[in-house]
Design a protein around this nucleic acid. Structure first.
Length: 585
RNA sequence: GCGGUGAUAGCUCAGCCGGAUAGAGCAACGGUUUUCUAAACCGUCGGUCCCGGGUUCGAGUCCCGGUCACCGCGCCA
């Protein structure tokens, strides 16, 4: 017998049909509002009867009873339906329906199919985007980690994702850096730690070129030479970029990030002229105080707060390059969506940018992609100010990841001293770096983030190790059982979930597509983190309450089935967050 | 001044389109192991959801007013 497992969308459709079958005069207007329910009450609840009844001055409980009576018998076979409170309709899935879902979602591909439909076409995601010739510090972590998770979520739900690192590789700072480099570069230091040396040279160049000094004039001339294509300066600039990208990639490797493109600001240098021309021709931009600016008369604030797209001296700025970038992404990649991940302080800039792009593209008849600015709160010190170590330097990302791995290594060695050292190091890398990533992802991105080593490196509670540990325990059970989690024959005899812990776990598993949908729609990975934490909690409770490897074949098979599906969902989810699951820890 | 974001347990935070008794983790205290990894599980303690109004069957959630914090607002990116 084949028993299907109805989910929210199926119940929604069934209720609409029932409204018509019950003879409601305005059944077409009925919005069932089916959603996942508090597990204490049901699997799903429909709240839509209350507002519907209210608008028509009818008794909501009576309406709800009519709907329930009009539901098709097939549905009643798969779930228990009750009316509760003022008129909620509760749906509790029968264990056989849960079993049907578990059987139907055996592979990553089947899981993905259940989650597809969120995004389509090409989505360009602009994240990380550090400045070249500088170290990455903890302030760079959020964009990289959140951006990568969003890329994976978008790809998982059907988009073709283009990962674009929009490097800050062009601008006035290069004049000072070249000035410093030509005078004080130390080849040995450059070979040992290039970024460190470039930072030193920039600082030295900056200090040696105070405002109004002849030295500053010389630094500016270096910049002009670079922009005019002077071979020596261009070669130096290229070297700075290469060295920087190499250092960045060592960080990205640890975070599981690989960009498709590194199209920095310099790439758009010769594309801004078209922006000026088209914006001016369309009457969108105007000259004000010598600069080319865009006002938005329909906007309460931007009708007077200008968007400067070209400076009075004729030079481009980041608005110019961001406009050129939006055009390039649309024309070259055919972007259906553009997601830019930066901190909240740039909200005004991107709001103005998007308003301008919409008018510009509409005026020219260009395809208009969906535009999203994904913001996140600042990382601050305990005082709410910019982050510093005790010595006054910013905390380097490399140092943070190193510290995380060291702490994790000490813990692995305590917990699992029998494992070979190389494996303990590999586990420590996944646990330590994963903890740092997860600490960032698990918090709602819009709130500010007070940095603390203990919080970032915590290994208890709602943290990466808790999720990784649940997975490692499942692998351990399969090792003991002598079967692979993908081995369907070991699961064939499974019957429906029966114990409270089994049922709670199965009910959590079927909600995975809903969690994915929410995280994707809101571009908020913490909703996926929350789900995975609850899943790992339900699994841990199950693991504690019900022994898997028992003698009765049906019980053993159904618990192995739950383990296999938990593992599949957990590892899929961890991967979407950019974390690496572990088989042992 | 205008605008954005935030304020929920001692601490760090969830709370999705208004929905049922506001939830986790940490910390504190107590319990669970001859049994698949105790990095676990179970329990106890802990709340003026910043303040004041409003909308309604129902408000942490929406609206209005206020307080505090961080941030943005003409040539940095």
């Amino acid at each position: 017998m084949h028993v299907a497992c109805p989910l929210a969308a199926d119940l929604d459709a069934a209720l609409r049909t029932a409204a018509a079958a019950a003879g409601w005069a305005d059944a077409a207007d009925f919005q069932p509002d089916v959603r996942a329910a508090d597990p204490r009450h049901a699997d799903f609840q429909a709240n839509g009867v209350l507002p519907h009844a209210k608008a028509r001055r009818l008794n909501p409980r009576a309406l709800a009873e009519q709907l329930v009576a009009a539901l098709p018998p097939e549905l009643r076979a798969t779930c228990t339906v009750t009316v509760a409170g003022p008129g909620f309709i509760n749906f509790t899935l029968q264990p056989e329906a849960l079993l049907a879902w578990l059987r139907a979602h055996a592979t990553a591909e089947q899981l993905r199919a259940a989650c597809a439909g969120g995004a389509a076409g090409t989505w360009v995601v602009d994240y990380s985007s550090p400045n070249t010739a500088k170290q990455m510090h903890v302030g760079h972590l959020r964009s990289a980690v959140i951006g990568e998770a969003l890329c994976r979520l978008l790809a998982f739900t059907g988009a073709t994702v283009v990962r674009d690192n929009h490097l800050g590789d062009w601008g006035t700072q290069f004049g000072k850096l070249i000035y410093g480099y030509k005078r004080w570069a130390d080849p040995a230091a450059l070979a040992a730690d290039p970024i460190e040396e470039l930072e030193r040279l920039y600082k030295r160049g900056h200090e040696a070129t105070p405002e109004g000094s002849p030295e500053l004039e010389e630094a500016r001339r270096e910049l002009v030479r670079l922009q005019q294509g002077d071979p020596e300066n261009v070669a130096l600039w290229r070297k700075f970029s290469e060295v920087s990208l190499g250092a960045f990639q060592r960080i990205y490797d640890r975070l599981g990030i690989r960009f498709d493109h590194n199209l920095g600001e310099s790439f758009y240098n010769d594309q801004v002229e078209r922006v000026y021309t088209e914006l001016t021709a369309a009457g969108i931009a105007e000259v004000s105080e010598g600069a080319l600016v865009v006002f938005h008369p329909e906007h309460p604030r931007f009708k007077t707060q200008p968007f400067l797209v070209r400076k009075a001296d004729g030079a481009s700025n980041y608005a110019s390059t961001d406009l050129a970038t939006a055009l390039y992404r649309t024309e070259h990649f055919g972007a259906a969506g553009i997601v830019i991940v930066t901190d909240f302080r740039q909200s005004d800039h991107f709001e103005q940018l998007f308003l301008t792009v919409r008018k510009w593209f509409t005026a020219r008849g260009y395809r208009l992609p969906e535009l999203h600015h994904v913001t996140f709160g600042a990382v601050t010190g305990e005082d709410g100010k910019a982050l510093k170590t005790r010595s006054g330097d910013v905390i380097r990302l490399k140092a943070l990841l190193d510290e995380a791995e060291e702490r994790a290594f000490a813990l692995v060695t305590t917990k699992s001293p029998e494992l070979p050292e190389a494996e303990r190091h590999a586990i420590a890398a996944a646990v330590g770096v994963g903890a740092v990533q997860y600490a960032d992802l698990a918090q709602n991105r819009s709130s500010n983030y007070v940095f603390s080593w203990d919080k970032m490196l915590s290994l208890d509670g709602n943290t990466a190790p808790y999720l990784l540990y649940a997975g490692a325990r499942i692998h351990s059970i399969f090792r003991r059982a002598g079967v692979a989690p993908e081995d369907a024959t070991a699961l064939a005899a499974a019957d429906a979930p029966a114990t409270p812990a089994e049922l709670a776990l199965a009910r959590r598993l079927i909600r995975f597509p809903d969690a994915i949908r929410q995280a994707r729609e809101t571009l908020r990975p913490h909703l996926l983190c929350l789900y995975l934490f609850e899943l790992a909690g339900d699994y841990s409770s199950f693991n504690n309450a019900d022994k898997v490897l028992v003698d009765e074949p049906a019980v053993r098979a159904r618990r192995l089935l739950l383990c296999a599906r938990t593992l599949l969902v957990l590892e899929t989810g961890l991967h979407l967050l950019g974390l690496r699951p572990l088989r042992r820890m």
